[in-house]
């Protein structure tokens, strides 16, 4: 499968995040609510939107700028927090 260190790190961190979500869900179950996204969302949905949004932020960064991709990472993290908190 041609594993490399960066891709392995990527998948392990996604997996750890999923485990974290699972534990969080067991400790305090989610309540459905609607924030600035029009739809009503659960915590899992917001997490998914956060990840998907981060992917698109990285792609846009790569497509439109020549700056280092590392800058896109904190931007994605901010997006993730916004979605999780107010989404």
């Amino acid at each position: 499968m041609y594993w490399t260190l960066p891709t392995a790190t990527f998948f392990i961190s996604i997996f750890l995040m999923l485990c974290g979500m699972l534990v969080w869900e067991l400790v305090s179950p989610t309540i459905e609510r609607s924030g600035f996204l029009i739809i009503s969302t659960t915590r899992g949905t917001r997490f998914f939107l956060g990840l998907l949004g981060s992917a698109f932020i990285h792609l846009a960064w790569l497509g439109f700028t020549d700056l280092s991709l590392w800058i896109a990472l904190p931007i994605s993290a901010v997006w993730m927090i916004i979605v999780m908190r107010w989404g």
């Binding site: 699972l22 949905t45 998914f48």
Partner: peptide, 9 residues
């Protein structure tokens, strides 16, 4: 059950 909506999606 836990994660049913996510699983279905």
């Amino acid at each position: 059950f836990l994660g049913d909506g996510q699983m279905f999606f």
